[in-house]
Amino acid sequence: MSVDIESARLTTDVPAAEAEMPTENADLLSKLRRYRNLLISIFSVVTFISVWELVGRLGLVSPVFLPSPSLIYREGVMLFQNGVIQTDILASTRRVLVGFGISAAVAVPLGLLMGTSETLKAIFDPILSIIRPLPALSWIPLSMLWLGIGESQKYAIVFMGAFAPTLVYVIDATRRVDPLVIKAAKNLGASRLAVLREVILPGAMPNIISGLKVVLAVAWTCIISAEMVGASNGLGYRIWSAKDWGNTPQVLLGMVGISLTVLVIDTIFKKVEEKLIPWERNRR
């Protein structure tokens, strides 16, 4: 994550620096600087994996406790060839996105209303403050009783994990909208509804989106745990069942799978963010 930010900043900074130093030498230097951090990052990853591999090869730690990267890779190839890992990734991703999506679809409009109407806030606030401290996992028994261990139970767990934090983020974002801009809109003849649609929603959007990014990570925590407790596929299930069979490489493979999937989804989310708030383009 931090590596990503670093490299992004470098690519924007460098052209200006190049313009100041027109000589070939400086050009080369700036090119080198551009790749410097990337090279360092690659080096750091390679070193980390090599040391880990070496620890396994030299027999310093038993592979049952910590299998070496090559063993995990072999396990990965096998699970990939019979399609297991793809099914797991797709299942978990779908559960996260559906639960998260439904939660956002309900929490964003509700949060906008609660942030702007004292009455609605008074109605829903007590309920929110009771639900909010409950970890999503505490809903697992009840959700199983009501919904079994099918897909809808998974969606429900993600929903319960994502809903309250999303609502809190949206209410907060709504209240941070510059009151002067709201005044200006009213002065130009905007009705209450127009203020909500034209001013408060876009004004709160940057903060809503950064809130949603945090909640997305929470949603992943929820689904992995829910799958560990009761599921027949998914990354959480894969890790848990591998543990039962004493298959440590598969446990670690599942963890790597989670990591990579979340990274990919984060990247997609960033693209969506750029589309949703184009006016922030020169602040990034």
Partner: peptide, 17 residues
């Protein structure tokens, strides 16, 4: 609040979006 009285604020109050 009356749109017939157009206000110009010191801090612009433009819609950033």
């Amino acid at each position: 609040i009356d749109p017939r009285c157009g206000m110009i604020f010191q801090n612009y109050a433009l819609f950033p979006w």
